[in-house]
Design a protein around this nucleic acid. Structure first.
Lengths: 160, 160
DNA sequence: AACAAATATATGTAGATACATGTTTTTATG
DNA sequence: CATAAAAACATGTATCTACATATATTTGTT
């Protein structure tokens, strides 16, 4: 670096000064920390962490969900999913079911897991409503479509 | 949840179907994972992790940098910064300098740390260029300004 | 059928993250 | 000045994350 602050975030006034000194990586991670904190506050009274809510609700909605299909869908490393679902299993929110293909383990939400989801849902929804009330439709669309753009970015990468 | 997939990400075709089932939290964390992976690939040959590059370059640029001022600037928890700078110190990239106020420790980049920064800089810049080449100016501005909007969101939160 | 390749999952290790709490030092207040 | 309050930093604990690698099982090939 050249001795200047890397300006993770930008002020609205700085819009026209966008240049490559602003680190997209640092900025996005900061946003991730902020949104994580926001949802953590909103779901404080739930037994589920924000991330666990995402995992559990996805498992509940995916037919024939396994570690692999889950990690594909959420774009998480398989080993991360293995560890995360282990915590959900230990908490009693899911259980593993053996399949004919004995390498696979189907993930099934238990009654206790469904109850946790039902209890957490209004808290999650309140957080969502708050977001929709305070961010513009454009901002939200941008956030929700960013993943696709970044995935494309990695695929066509000529860097490595 | 109601048994539907929460649709973390959206397809471009889904733009007009934006609704509160799309989880901003999950989507943003996914983007954070993707961008982290992208920069990690780009900086594979550096001794610095992407996050360490952010920390170290910020320390280098901040006058009178301490754990507190650094955590304020980067919007990270103080305990996270304490642990992160400890790793940088153990790697020889920074050192701690005692101040008159003996509670504080000034963070100072060592020659070795500066060398690591200089070596990593072109790799980081190549990643930046790649981003600028493949994302629209609007997308990038959006990313770089998102932090401010989310920070405001948390402040005025009525949820908790 | 035998063996190589691919698939699914797990484990070792380590960094990033933050909450609750503790310690030390400084500042403020009576 | 003495004591309470605040500030700065550290530690215990726990989740999230992923790379390298290992193990088990299935599939493909000869």
């Amino acid at each position: 670096m050249k001795g200047e602050l890397s300006n993770l975030a930008m002020d609205t006034q700085d819009l026209n000064k966008t240049n490559r000194r602003h680190c997209v990586h640092a900025s996005l991670r900061q946003s991730s920390r902020l949104i994580t904190s926001f949802y953590a506050d909103a779901m404080h009274d739930s037994v589920l962490q924000g991330t666990q809510f995402t995992l559990l609700s996805t498992i509940a909605a995916m037919p024939q969900c396994t570690v692999s299909t889950l990690s594909d869908y959420l774009v998480m490393d398989q080993t991360t999913v293995t560890r995360s679902v282990k915590l959900l299993e230990q908490a009693g929110f899911i259980q593993f079911k053996k399949l004919k293909d004995r390498r696979k383990r189907q993930l099934i939400v238990t009654a206790q897991g469904q109850q946790a989801l039902d209890d957490a849902y209004p808290l999650w929804l309140a957080a969502q409503e708050h977001i929709w009330a305070h961010l513009s439709e454009d901002d939200i669309k941008q956030i929700l479509t960013l993943g696709n753009k970044l995935a494309a970015l990695s695929k066509e990468s000529t860097i490595k």
